[in-house]
C-alpha cells in the first residue's frame, strides 16, 4: 500500500478530459481501520439515501473502500444504518 505520494493537483492536468473534475486522489483519513460502529465516519461516504458512494466519488483507497463496504453492511444488519433511507 505504500505508494509514493504524488504531488499532482487534480485540476491542473492537461489533455483530453482536462475539464473534468477529479476528486482528490485519496481522501485523507486518519484512521487505519474503518469500523461499523463509527457512524459519523460512515455517513461521510454515504449518499443522502444511505447508499454507498463509489470510489470515484469517495476518493478512498482500495483497502479503505473495501473496509467501508463491509462496515456499512454490518451496521445495516444491526439497524444502526437504514437499508432504505428517507428523503
Amino acid at each position: 500500500m505504500a505508494r509514493p505520494q504524488k504531488q499532482d493537483d487534480s485540476r491542473r492536468r492537461r489533455g483530453p478530459g482536462a475539464d473534468r473534475f477529479r476528486p482528490r486522489k485519496y481522501a485523507r483519513l486518519s484512521v487505519d481501520y474503518i469500523d461499523y460502529k463509527d457512524l459519523t465516519l460512515l455517513r461521510r461516504f454515504l449518499s443522502d439515501r444511505g447508499k454507498t458512494r463509489s470510489r470515484r466519488v469517495t476518493g478512498l483507497s482500495r483497502k479503505h473502500q473495501q473496509q467501508f463496504a463491509v462496515a456499512v453492511k454490518r451496521a445495516r444488519e444491526l439497524a444502526l444504518l437504514p437499508y432504505v433511507g428517507e428523503r
Binding site: R43, P82, G85
Partner: peptide, 24 residues
C-alpha cells in the same frame, strides 16, 4: 486493532449524510 467505542447516538438515526464532508 478495531475500536471498541460505542456508536454515536443521534436523535434521528435516519439522517444519513448529515455529516458529509466537503470532499467532492
Amino acid at each position: 486493532e478495531s475500536p471498541t467505542t460505542a456508536p454515536p447516538t443521534s436523535d434521528r438515526p435516519h439522517s444519513v449524510g448529515s455529516e458529509r464532508s466537503d470532499d467532492g
